[in-house]
Amino acid sequence: MRVVIFGGTGFVGVNLASALLARGHRVMLYDRKQLPEAAHRSLVDHGERFSVVQGEITDSDRIEALIAQGCDSIVLGAAITAGERLERAASSSILEINVMAQLPILTLAIRHRVHRVVNLSSAAAYGAAGQRYQLLDEETPCEPLSLYALSKFASERVVARYAELWGGDFISVRLSAVFGPWERIGKVRDTPSLQFQILAEFDRGAPAILPTPGFKDWIYAIDVAEAVALLLEAERPRYRLYNISSGTSWSALQWGEAFARLHPPLQCRLAVPEEKTFIEQHGPDRAPLSVERMASEFGWRARFGCTESASDMSVWWAQHREGA
C-alpha cells in the first residue's frame, strides 16, 4: 500500500511508519514539524518507499496534489494534544486542527478513491465515563469534558458521518495512554506520558520521583503501530470504531522501577509528603479500555506489558538517548 500519515513526525506516526515499512508498504509522513534526525536515520534505509513532506495540515491544495499522485490509505494523526495550559492558550486551534482540518482530507479521500482512512482518536473521548465504569468498550456512552476530548469525540462522529454519506471506508481508533520510542513534547503537545518524564529525569542523572503511582491501561507505541497497521491491511473491518489498549491497568511507578532495575543505580519512587517533583500526571486514573473487539475480529492483543515494554525501551534508550 501507499500510505500517507498526517501528523506523521509525531512519535505514534514514526512507530507506525516503521511498522508499515517493515511490512513492505510505502509510507509518506506529512507534518509541519521536521522529523527528528535520529528517527530519520532509523527509517531512511527503506529508500524510495519512505518520504517526508513538511507542510501545514490546513494546506488543502498541497495535500490534494499529494493524494492525487496515488494513495491507498490515509492515517489522520495530526492533532493538538492539549492539557489545561495549552487548552487555555489555543482553544480555537484545538478544534480547527483536530476536527475542521479533517474535512477537506476526507473529501479528497472520497474524490480520489482512497481505499481506507484511519482516524487516530483517543480514550479521552470517554471523559467522565472513565470514572463511572469499570471497563470501557466501544459502546460505552462518552462524556467528554476537555476541549481535546470533545474534539476527538467530534472527529470520530465526523469520520463516521462522512462514511455514511459517501460510502468511504473510514475507521476511528481510540488509543489508550500511549508511550514509547520517539516520544517528545512540543508546541502542540504538552501532555507527555509519565514514562517519558521518568526517562527525562534519568537523562539528567536524577531519581524519577512520581507524585502518584499513575495507574492506566498504558499501551506501548509499537503495539499501537501493529494494531493500526493490521486495520489498514484488513480486507473488510466490521466496525467503524476500535479501542487500542493493553486492556489491563498497571502503574507508571511499576514501569519506572522495572526500568531502573535494568540501569543501576537509577531510582524511581513515589514522592514523600511535601517533596517537590518535576513529574506531572495529566488527567485522573480511569477504567481500562476493552480490546475484545480487536481480539475477537483480528486475534490482536498487545505484546508489551509493563516489564516487556520497560525492557524494550531500555534497549532503545541506550541506543538513541543522545539523538532522541
Results as ranks from 00 to 15, higher is better:
Asp203Trp: 02
Ser176Thr: 01
Arg238Pro: 03
Arg161Gly: 11
Ser172Ile: 09
Leu165Gln: 11
Ala260Val: 07
Asp137Cys: 14
Val178Ser: 02
Arg189Asp: 01
Glu257Cys: 06
Pro237Glu: 11
Gln134His: 14
Glu138Gln: 14
Arg204Asp: 06
Val228Ala: 05
Ala125His: 05
Arg261Asp: 14
Gly130Ala: 11
Pro141Cys: 14
Tyr133Gly: 05
Ala252Trp: 04
Gln134Val: 03
Val158Thr: 15
Leu262Ser: 14
Glu226Val: 01
Gly180Phe: 01
Ser246Asn: 10
Leu194His: 02
Ser155Ala: 15
Pro265His: 06
Glu156Ile: 13
Ala177Gln: 01
Gly186His: 04
Lys152Ala: 13
Gln254Arg: 12
Pro192Arg: 01
Gln195Val: 12
Cys268Asn: 07
Glu235Gln: 07
Ala206Thr: 02
Glu138Pro: 12
Asn243Ser: 05
Arg269Trp: 11
Arg236Gly: 08
Glu257Leu: 06
Gly167Trp: 11
Leu136Pro: 04
Glu164Val: 10
Val158Tyr: 13
His263Pro: 05
Ile185Val: 08
Lys216Met: 05
Val158His: 12
Leu270Pro: 08
Gly167Glu: 09
Tyr148Arg: 07
Tyr126Met: 06
Asn243Glu: 05
Ile219Gly: 03
Val178Thr: 07
Trp250Cys: 01
Gly256Met: 00
Leu230Ile: 02
Ala128Val: 05
Ser249Pro: 03
Ala163Glu: 11
Gly168Gln: 10
Ala221Thr: 14
Arg269Cys: 09
Cys142Phe: 10
Asp217Pro: 02
Ala163Lys: 12
Gly127Val: 06
Lys152Arg: 15
Thr212Lys: 13
Arg240Met: 08
Ala225Asn: 01
Trp218His: 07
Ala221Met: 04
Ala124Gln: 06
Asp203Ile: 04
Leu210Phe: 08
Gly180Glu: 06
Pro181Lys: 04
Thr140Gly: 12
Leu266Pro: 04
Glu139Arg: 14
Ala177Asp: 04
Ile219His: 04
Gly247Ala: 05
Thr248Ala: 13
Pro181Glu: 13
Trp166Asp: 08
Leu270Ile: 10
Tyr239Leu: 13
Ala206Cys: 08
Gln254Tyr: 07
Ser245Cys: 04
Arg184His: 07
Ile209Lys: 00
Glu138Trp: 12
Arg261Gly: 06
Gly214Trp: 03
Arg174Pro: 00
Ile171Asp: 00
Ile222Asn: 00
Ala163Thr: 10
Arg204Ile: 04
Ala160Asn: 11
Ala160His: 13
Val188Ile: 03
Gly247Leu: 05
Ser146Asn: 12
Arg161Ile: 07
Ala125Asn: 06
Glu226Arg: 10
Asp190Tyr: 02
Leu145Lys: 14
Glu138Thr: 15
Pro144Asp: 14
Gln134Asn: 15
Val228Leu: 03
Val224Cys: 07
Arg184Tyr: 03
Cys142Trp: 08
Ala128Glu: 12
Ala160Ser: 13
Gly214His: 07
Gln134Ser: 15
Arg132Cys: 15
Arg161Leu: 13
Tyr133Pro: 06
Gly167Ser: 09
Leu175Thr: 02
Arg238Thr: 10
Leu194Thr: 00
Val173Pro: 02
Ala124Tyr: 01
Leu147His: 11
Ala260Thr: 04
Ala227Asn: 02
Pro213Phe: 11
Lys216Pro: 00
